[in-house]
């Protein structure tokens, strides 16, 4: 199971990011553990400079903006 974290302080873009990952995961039937990180100190500890960012299994894969559907599908099929 993939451990996915969405880093963001709760703006609209962060919510859309969580939503699109949920959508793609359920459409593909991939089990994921999706977590939203809103604490600032935790967010910056990943070394990202813009939010929303996406961390999969401890690795930052995306930063600054809502990821495209294609991109999310790639993450979940790998």
């Amino acid at each position: 199971m993939k451990d996915i974290k969405v880093l963001g302080t709760g703006c609209a873009k962060c919510k859309s990011t969580v939503a699109i990952i949920e959508q793609v995961a359920s459409a593909k039937g991939v089990p994921v553990k999706l977590e939203k990180i809103e604490d600032m100190q935790q967010i910056v500890s990943y070394g990202v400079m813009s939010t929303p960012s996406v961390v999969i299994d401890g690795k930052v894969v995306h930063s600054g903006g809502i990821p495209s559907r294609d991109k999310v599908e790639q993450w979940l099929s790998a």
Binding site: C14, V44, M49, G64
Partner: peptide, 11 residues
């Protein structure tokens, strides 16, 4: 985006 102001500042 102003919601990124803090991570950017720290970075």
């Amino acid at each position: 985006c102003s919601c990124s102001a803090v991570p950017l500042f720290i970075g």
